[in-house]
Design a protein around this nucleic acid. Structure first.
Length: 865
RNA sequence: GCCCGAGUGGCGGAAUGGCAGACGCAAAGGACUUAAAAUCCUUCGGAGGCAACUCCGUGCCGGUUCGAGUCCGGCCUCGGGCACCA
């Protein structure tokens, strides 16, 4: 154990060692000091945010905890330590800071561990919260504990249910049969966000697609408002990208193709030709329907709507493809010659999981014999395929296929020997699909146009002839909101045979989760709550007849979709939050958390917040004005550390050994906030060394008002770096901001220490400012030293100000370059004229005749000779 | 396949286009010590040289510039996310 060196009190040694140890090590007894100040902060409610204050407000939040029985892990420390530092820093800067803490305790992790331990989830939750509270206190985090909330508390979930009722009453929640992702291991329906990549986010099982009765929230309707929020939230561009990609907005057109049938003689399949060229590339000529044929009385058989982002390629359509579940198949079943095969294909496709579909790169499909689509632009007759690369969940579940200009269609056309027509010049479609811009060809109405103009013109034409409209599509789907599990908020919904789904009156909230002896999930499709027979039986609030309660529960994302609002007014029993407090506190000024929540929690949060804004329940559009995502802590193999991977290191053991101040310093000093970091304790010795030096500063305290130039400059440089490196005021744009640089701020603390040690003394005023500057990072030791040297509570101080003029040096050393190569340095006066600088530089260089001189004032001089 | 991000000493990492390697760890040598620990001092990218010093060096190849770790173009490697989204 190389790290146990200095704090192992069990060593027995001779007296001189013990004496030394007592003076130099025991004296900095972090266990005693840290406990003392943690108790003091608790006793004095030191970090209580004031509702309404003349001070400017600052609301800083990290994603609240899902309390598991294993206690906090390194990821929590990595996420919370920066906001902890910022909260303390902002308080010293004179802000009224809200830094709350809470528990996101509903959901599968707790329920699964409760099932394993054979205990009630509520008991497990309570126990876990106790563990977390204790551990977080040991880290010295400055939460306002008076605002602690848990999503599992009826006083909290009452308002989660209330928000659901507002959604329901505004038509934003509806129940429908749908094909949804289902986790066979967790035995519950999952949202798309919870099953990204076809994998259950909780247990990593492959999800299946199952038909279920589902409560949906109309999140898709909020696509535009959510996109607006994304562009307004101050956040790294790459995070915005991934959110925008998730919402997946595409502009295009919806085009209607009419469906004709062979059997009725409307088309002649024999007219279809596909000529094989010598090089194996197919081109085709397409038969056109005659006006006479179109005029038959039973025309058309059906219509097929497709969505495309490339209406400009309409002349290049050589086949249609529909999803296996597309209703057209059954609608026209009696006209389809090979209906048996098609149904077999459909059944086979349904069994494939999303994962299997993605892995199986080879395109599959089957031609629908007997049906033809008619291209509205030129009446060309087009074959129709069923193919599982077309998904029912996006657009209309049907596409027009343009092999010449779409890679997937190209692949399919090659495999099935379908024609490939070039309608945009610029590529070589004998080799691959050309998807770039170019000039339209083979497209009578739009020939010669560039793609963007062609899109506009053809869309306008389609609208004119009634065959299409401009349309926007989104990848994001409505949110499947019910889970067939126990540990979640019950839906405040009564199912009445006469009235349908009826809202529970708001006065009856909270609708409490009943206690159950057996709450294990099963595959019946009913949630465990269906076993609470008495609870389920109720009367319809509308007609008074016997009715039953909804027995599914809400997903664990429900309670976290609005919690930042509850922190503003956590004990309000009349409203979810009072309008006055909403007005005072406004949006979260800084919200931090993991990147994994960027396309989950943050989108849900944005959706609920925007909805609450629309119904007038919150006054501001944005839930958060700034978001930062911390990097991961990786293990020695570069894999993510976490409770699930079994490689977690217990932060509490580190605190016991090195102290909270040292641990906080170490985790911030390890690397850049946003970058992933390989976990290691190498280097924590540097932090403990530093703390011991800080501790020993009183020994070299000089009670003097005399200031040395070097000290003064070092002090102001240190303060400046701390003051600009922690967090900036938000006025600056993302790129020009240099904050969240905790590692370099700590480096500048160390640099000041080195300057002090070099001169061998520190004055009282320097020590005072130094302690205050470092207090946000290492609050215990600085509080203790401050009290010992100056008396009183350091938290009553203000962050020191730096004076830019104190940073200016009278003489600076600048590099001298010859042809851009460093040759040496010269020392010049602050305002030394260029001629004199040049002279010094030339003296250094010796025998050169300059052709040109580049001088950047007080920075560098470069001689071109 | 597509979209991001990252490649700098033995290690973690610093560097608004201006002295590459701040700060720290580890290591080596020295002081103190009966000894060890702790502490303090020194060295610490590579090659050459007795030396002052010289040359090379930020994944690779080009380019822009008086000057490139930083900007541009083209690659390579690693990591992450999305994945038939029409």
């Amino acid at each position: 154990m190389p790290y146990a060196l200095c704090h192992d009190t069990s060593i027995s040694l001779d007296t001189s060692f013990v004496l030394y140890y007592y003076i130099n090590v025991m004296e900095y007894d972090f266990r005693k000091i840290e406990k003392k100040w943690q108790d003091f902060w608790k006793k004095t409610d030191a970090f209580k945010a004031e509702d309404f204050s003349s001070k400017p407000k600052f609301y800083v939040l990290s994603e609240f905890f899902g309390p598991s029985g294993k206690g906090i892990h390194l990821g929590h420390v990595k996420c919370f330590t920066p906001t902890e530092v910022i909260a303390r820093y902002k308080r010293l800067k004179g802000y009224n800071v809200l830094y709350p803490v809470g528990w996101d305790a509903f959901g599968l992790p707790t329920e699964n561990s409760a099932l394993k331990e054979n205990r009630a989830p509520a008991d497990v939750t309570e126990k876990n919260i106790g563990i977390f509270t204790n551990q977080l206190t040991k880290l010295g985090f400055s939460f306002d504990w008076s605002r602690e909330v848990s999503t599992t508390d009826p006083a909290y979930y009452r308002w989660t249910q209330w928000i659901f009722l507002q959604l329901f009453k505004n038509g934003m929640a509806y129940k429908a049969d749908g094909v949804v992702s289902f986790c066979p291991s967790c035995k519950t329906v999952l949202s798309n966000e919870d099953s990204q990549g076809g994998i259950c986010d909780r247990c990593k099982s492959a999800v299946e697609q199952r038909k279920r009765s589902v409560w949906y929230l109309r999140m898709k309707d909020y696509s535009e408002k959510m996109l607006a929020a994304i562009s307004d939230i101050d956040m790294k561009p790459s995070l915005k990208d991934s959110q925008q990609n998730w919402i997946g907005k595409s502009d295009g057109a919806e085009v209607t193709f009419q469906i004709a049938s062979d059997l009725r003689g409307e088309v002649d399949s024999g007219q279809w030709t596909a000529d094989s060229k010598a090089d194996g590339n197919l081109v085709g000529s397409q038969a056109q329907l005659t006006p006479q044929k179109l005029a038959t009385d039973h025309w058309p058989l059906a219509t097929l709507k497709i969505f495309t982002t490339r209406p400009d390629t309409l002349y290049g359509v050589t086949y249609m493809a529909i999803a296996p579940e597309h209703p057209l198949i059954e609608e026209c079943a009696d006209q389809i010659a090979n209906i048996k095969e098609i149904r077999a294909y459909r059944n086979q496709a349904a069994k494939k999981t999303a994962e299997a579909r993605a892995e199986n790169k080879e395109k599959t499909g089957i031609r629908i014999d007997g049906l033809w689509a008619v291209n509205p632009i030129n009446n060309a007759q087009i074959p129709i395929y069923v193919a599982d690369y077309v998904m029912m969940g996006y657009g209309t579940g049907a596409i027009m296929a343009v092999p010449g200009h779409d890679t997937r269609d190209y692949e399919f056309a090659k495999k099935f020997g379908l024609p490939i027509i070039e309608v945009i010049s610029g590529g070589d479609i004998s080799k691959e699909a050309y998807t770039g811009d170019g000039i339209l060809v083979n497209s009578p109405l739009i020939d010669g146009l560039h793609v963007p103009e062609a899109k506009k013109k053809i869309t306008a034409y389609l609208e004119k002839i009634g065959a299409g409209i401009a349309k926007t599509n989104y990848k994001m789907q409505d949110w499947p909101f019910n889970r067939q599990r126990y540990w979640g908020e019950p839906f405040p919904i009564v199912i009445c045979d006469t009235c349908g789904y009826v809202a529970v009156p708001e006065s009856e909230l909270p609708l409490r989760l009943p206690k159950l002896s057996d709450y294990s999930p099963d595959e019946s499709g009913n949630g465990p709550l269906s076993k609470a027979v008495e609870w389920v039986q109720t009367t319809c609030p509308k007609c008074g007849k016997p009715a039953r309660r909804e027995t599914d529960t809400m997903p664990n994302w429900a309670g976290s979709s609005w919690y930042w609002l509850r922190f503003l007014d956590p004990h309000n029993e009349k409203e979810f939050v009072s309008p006055e407090k909403l007005m005072y506190w406004g949006a979260v000024d800084l919200y931090t958390g993991g990147t994994e929540h960027v396309t989950r929690h943050m989108l849900y949060a944005s959706f609920w917040h925007n909805f609450l804004c629309d119904i007038g329940a919150v006054p501001h559009r944005l839930p958060f004005t700034r978001r930062m995502c911390n990097g991961l802590i990786l293990d020695d193999k570069g894999k993510k550390m976490g409770k699930s991977s079994g490689n977690a290191i217990d932060p509490i053991k580190i605190i016991d050994q090195f102290g909270a101040d040292a641990f906080r310093l170490h985790i911030l000093f390890m690397g850049d906030y946003e970058q992933n970091t390989m976990w290691s304790l190498d280097g924590i010795n540097g932090c403990t060394n530093f703390l011991r030096r800080v501790w020993n500063l009183p020994e070299i305290l000089r009670d003097s008002s005399e200031v040395s130039k070097e000290h003064e400059r070092a002090l102001h440089l240190m303060i400046k770096r701390a003051d600009t490196g922690i967090i900036s005021d938000g006025q600056k744009s993302y790129d020009e901001r240099g904050d969240f640089k905790f590692n370099t701020v700590i480096a500048s603390f160390m640099e000041f220490m080195n300057a002090v040690r070099k001169s061998g003394f520190i004055t009282r005023e320097e020590l005072r400012q130094y302690l205050i500057a470092m207090n946000p990072f290492i609050p215990h030791i600085t509080s203790e030293l401050y009290e010992q040297v100056f008396g009183g509570d350091i938290l009553k101080e203000s962050f020191p100000a730096f004076d830019e003029s104190k940073l200016i040096e009278n003489a600076v050393e600048i590099p001298v370059q010859l042809l851009g190569k460093l040759k040496g340095t010269i020392t010049i006066e602050l305002d030394e004229p260029q001629a004199s600088v040049e002279q010094k530089a030339l003296a250094l260089l010796g025998n050169v005749t300059p052709k040109k001189v580049i001088y950047i004032k007080s920075k560098i001089i470069n001689i071109i000779a």
